[in-house]
Design a protein around this nucleic acid. Structure first.
Length: 166
DNA sequence: CCCTGATTCGC
DNA sequence: GCGAATCAGG
């Protein structure tokens, strides 16, 4: 979005008229995030925020962006099924997945992937891209990519994710 | 689920 | 600077 002076004027006007950020976004053809972002930068008068932010509060870590987890890119490609699990978040042993430089499929990982169709646990053991890397390979729960032991770790309820991820 | 605005930070 | 991702609340 190129914030021309005209666009900024319009944003200011709509903001002053009390439209919601999403509404302003719709009218201007941008996302509401773009609107709030720009409004914030312009230091337009803040709206009453629905959320409570204790100023000196123990903010989890980073509100906006999660800490960068390049590993998830690699791991996600290893265990795509896990990402589709409803209402669940995937937890992966971080130590097991420090992504090597390339974000695109490392051949070593591809080679290490268990034969598709073999219902063996896909839980990564060791470091992807290193010689010792392998998968758990215990018998997986039918319909899940992991054995019972690792499925218990891999699938956590989303609402509980914060506790675990913290 | 839908919605709200605020904040962070990779780009 | 931009804005998606994420937050937290209704």
């Amino acid at each position: 979005m190129e914030w021309t002076t005209e666009a900024i004027d319009r944003l200011r006007a709509l903001w002053a008229e009390g439209h919601s950020t999403a509404e302003i976004g719709r009218r201007m053809g941008v996302s509401k995030n773009a609107v709030v972002g720009k409004a914030h930068r312009l230091q337009l008068p803040a709206r009453p925020s629905p959320i409570r932010r204790d100023p000196a509060a123990p903010r989890p870590v980073a509100a906006g962006r999660r800490p960068t987890l390049p590993p998830l890119r690699v791991v996600a490609s290893i265990v795509p099924a896990a990402r589709r699990e409803e209402s669940a978040a995937v937890v992966v042993p971080v130590a097991a997945a420090p992504a090597p430089a390339p974000a695109s499929k490392p051949a070593s990982v591809v080679r290490a992937f268990p034969r598709m169709g073999a219902r063996s646990c896909c839980w990564p053991i060791g470091e992807p891209g290193t010689p010792g890397f392998k998968f758990c390979s215990a018998e997986a729960i039918p319909g899940k990519p992991y054995c019972a032991e690792h499925a218990a770790v891999a699938y956590v309820r989303v609402k509980d994710r914060r506790e675990d991820a913290a």
